[in-house]
Design a protein around this nucleic acid. Structure first.
Lengths: 339, 339
DNA sequence: CTGTTAGCGCTTTCAC
DNA sequence: GTGAAAGCGCTAACAG
């Protein structure tokens, strides 16, 4: 067995025709004789020929590879969305490079650098909990590499995004907690420079207001998403003169960490303090006492949308004549799931 | 901003020297003048030059990309191990393509095909629950693409593998269950064509024997790892004339599914039927009633070993003079963790 | 110490 | 309908 992939040249030699004829035959070029075309295709199949992507890449200045940067794959939300991305783009003949930032800016920057060096055709990213500046993302522009942000989208700077309607979700969750009797509802939010933290806060505040409840700045905490910080912030809430009787958490993991902190203080989650959160992860269905409600964010669908959007942008930017697509924001609806 | 990556040619032109001089300067070739070398390196840095991987690939017949095929990333075991793989190989300048088989043979075959077409330098794979034949893996050989199997390794066919010592783990788990008072211990095992299912069974049987307990073939079930099949097999166990008072499950997810099936039958897991399992996944620490013990398999370390092994094999196979490495099997120790 | 050249695998004008 | 040749970006003999 030849430890070797067949080339167009070999096919040409074996068939005593020219390389260009083979190339054209393989592409079903109309001006190639039917007989030649068949001969070539047959031999190609027999030799397991597939074009060398490096050669194509050099020629077409495109790699058919995309990069995906996620905070971490241990979170089911992200593993679900990368599954969707993989499903969509592999259908279109793209391969997926994976890179986890593990919620550090440094790794995120490294990932971007590495993807630039690899000449990926595009990137999908969900930013790290530490990311407060976007220089590394801006750099992509100078290389003409499109990027679609996904779920954890940056504030201020205009870009392609796919995120879910967490404002509505937050509103619905607060409403539900109030309905369950809560009067002092706290928000255990994520990092402040994330757009989706803002959205949660807006939904939270507007529900509080509309329901005639009250809140104070001390009821709104921001965790860096680490177990330690989440615990700390939860304990801060519990130490308040008037501790909350309900907490809306940034996501299910934050809720779980916060609930554990409660238990350690001898406080029963969901009886003394109600918990609601975001993501509605499948894994919580195995828990005896999960948050009483969670805002479903449809991770898989979000991944699909992000993938489709990126493909659109990439295919568009390939035609030099076409105007660059203007930045687009896709908002996926949410749905409060009561457990 | 030029939507364009700098090339060696541009550098050469701007510096009025030849392309090969630039190439050599960039590689710090000894026979290049210090002044030239500095000039080149400075300009390269200024232009953000990085070599085009497609060109290198064509030249060196190597892509610096590896492929990883896993059943699915939702399982924390696999997301942990891919993290390790990523950490190790990216350090060595490799990129990671990801592909999930979702426990189907068809997707696994597709992934292999796609990786062959992409000319990956090597593959790490954990086989699907359906994989009973290895033709697709064997095909890699004819292309000289090395593969390292990982955790879910195939039986019979010789290859590079990294797996954990689940036999010892199974033994320890059964011993623990017996110590907790169990006398009728069942094994809810994984797919039969997996080596690691065999190992579990051997450990289980030898512990049963050594402890003077008894078992019957009806106490040994095999699930295809789907929630449905696991439920069914658990219900089968419960329907036995003498239902087991303890179950050793293939992994934590299987245990959780089985425990849920018990609850649905009104049977309290871990009081009427004790559960132990494999993997010891971090997520179970959030559960109020997880399996009472789980065999830690050190997913991250296993990923590291697999990555190191693959790198060794790849770097060795590059030197045509070198003998091909003979197949090697790395066994990672396990440790029973009591919850 | 540096330049010229061929070639990795492929597409695509340009020719006939 | 088919072939010759240039070129994508880079490395590595071979020459000097």
């Amino acid at each position: 067995m030849a430890k070797h992939q067949a080339t167009i040249k070999e096919i040409a030699q074996k068939l005593s025709i020219s390389i260009s004829t083979v190339s054209r035959a393989l592409q079903n070029h109309p001006r190639i004789g039917l007989r030649t075309r068949e001969k070539v295709n047959d031999l190609a199949k027999k030799l397991n020929y597939t074009p060398n992507p490096a050669a194509l890449s050099l020629k077409k200045n495109t790699t058919r590879n995309i990069g995906v940067i996620l905070p971490n794959l241990q979170e089911e939300f992200f593993s679900l969305s990368i599954t969707a991305i993989e499903d969509i783009v592999s259908d279109k003949g793209y391969n997926v490079f994976i890179s986890q930032s593990r919620d550090t800016l440094a790794k995120e920057e490294k990932a971007i650098k590495s993807f630039i060096n690899s000449r990926v055709d595009g990137i999908i990213a969900s930013i790290s909990a530490e990311t407060y500046q976007y220089r590394h993302f801006k750099e992509l522009e100078s290389f003409g590499i499109p990027i679609v942000f996904f779920d954890r989208t940056p504030k201020v700077f205009p870009c392609f995004k796919v995120r879910s309607n967490v404002m509505d979700g937050a509103f619905a969750a607060v409403e539900f907690l109030a309905q369950k009797g809560a009067r002092h509802i706290a928000l255990l939010n994520g990092p402040a420079f994330l757009e989706i933290s803002d959205e949660r806060q807006q939904g939270y505040l507007s529900a509080i207001k509309q329901l005639g409840l009250s809140t104070t700045p001390a009821y709104v905490k921001s965790t860096d998403l680490s177990t330690e910080d989440t615990s700390k912030k939860m304990l801060d809430l519990l130490a308040l003169p008037q501790p909350p009787d309900a907490v809306l958490a940034f996501n299910d993991y934050v809720a779980l960490d916060a609930m554990r902190a409660c238990k350690q203080k001898g406080i029963l989650p969901n009886s003394e303090v109600l918990f609601a959160s975001f993501a509605n992860l499948p894994i919580t269905t195995y828990m005896d006492n999960p948050p009483i409600a969670s805002v479903e964010q449809f991770a898989y669908q979000m991944g699909e949308k992000a993938a489709h959007l990126l493909i659109n942008v990439m295919e568009n930017s390939h035609q030099d004549d076409a105007e660059p697509l203007s930045f687009e924001e896709i908002i996926v609806h949410t749905q409060l799931i009561v457990h």
